[in-house]
Design a protein around this nucleic acid. Structure first.
Lengths: 156, 156
DNA sequence: ATGCAAGCTGAAGTCAGCTTCAGGTCAAGG
DNA sequence: CCTTGACCTGAAGCTGACTTCAGCTTGCAT
């Protein structure tokens, strides 16, 4: 843990692509840790870069910071994810991505049929009723995953 | 324009699925219009339902309210979208959806290769660098569409 | 020794897109 | 006429994820 191996916040900004404001924010929120110099400046261990890459990946698939923190917290002793951890954790994102893709495809197909018919029927249109609550038990039920949901919660 | 054809806000809530708070908000923001009774209560024309379905559809594909308003404003005289309008407008959403799907698929494939190699290499990993800025002119360049972007803007 | 870029802090601000609240008013059925 | 549920308003609040600000301190190179 030679001091020369420690990174300043500026270096971490350069190498992670996160702005310093985000790095400080993540530290406050307990997603990353940083040591301090005598004078109070941050010094990061190299592992933080892997952690940050992990965060970047998670964010890009729509995982919220709370969930990222949980995932990282499950690693003993705040350790940086190893390859095995990474594999395990990222598998769940794979599922999430598949879900998102599936939902978007369903939406696109619904949109296509709507373009065709011009109906926009409130009772039947898949876009209006993407949860297919009318036929909630049917085979067409596709809930938009939370990461993709927009607009106010529908009223029944 | 018989008064019996006008809808109260409660009816619009029922039939559109939007909560009244959202309806009032959309009115303030100029996305829908409503007449008033002598006493000041809202009375909606039927066409508002189609407009709202339109908004719902747009929102669900990630279109922001500003852009929805623009689209609706381009219809002469605040008229409700006809089938032709709807077809024209929704085609651009189709493109947007295709883009989103493509981006997610690229992300998934990147994730797969990362699961395989465990690299998380900051310089090369597609998840870290989804815009592929390193090889920005290359064939692999895939920018996450705005509707799907998460996390702080990367610093160069 | 000193200049100055880089770093520090807490608090407040931002953005979208609503939601909630308090305290009243309206309108339709009986 | 009266009741009561539906409706009204403006202002404030909320969530998530940061960003910005003001004013001060550090630390490395010369």
């Amino acid at each position: 843990m030679d001091a020369r191996d420690l990174l300043t916040i500026g270096e971490v900004v350069q190498r992670s692509g996160f702005p310093h404001s985000a790095l400080r924010y993540y530290e406050r929120e307990g997603l990353v840790r940083a040591g301090r110099t005598a004078g109070g400046q941050r010094r990061y261990e190299r592992g933080v870069l892997r952690r940050l890459a992990f965060i970047r990946a998670a964010r890009s698939v729509g995982v919220g910071l709370d969930e990222v923190r949980e995932a990282l917290d499950r690693l003993p002793d705040g350790r940086t994810p190893t390859k095995a951890d990474w594999t395990r954790l990222s598998r769940s994102w794979r599922g999430r991505l598949d879900e998102q893709i599936e939902a978007l495809v369903a939406l696109r197909d619904g949109l296509d049929s709507c373009i065709g018919c011009g109906c926009l029927s409130l009772a039947r249109c898949r876009l209006w009723n993407p949860e297919d609550r009318v036929a909630a038990q049917g085979d067409g039920a596709r809930l938009l995953p939370p990461a993709l949901r927009r607009g106010p919660a529908p009223v029944d």
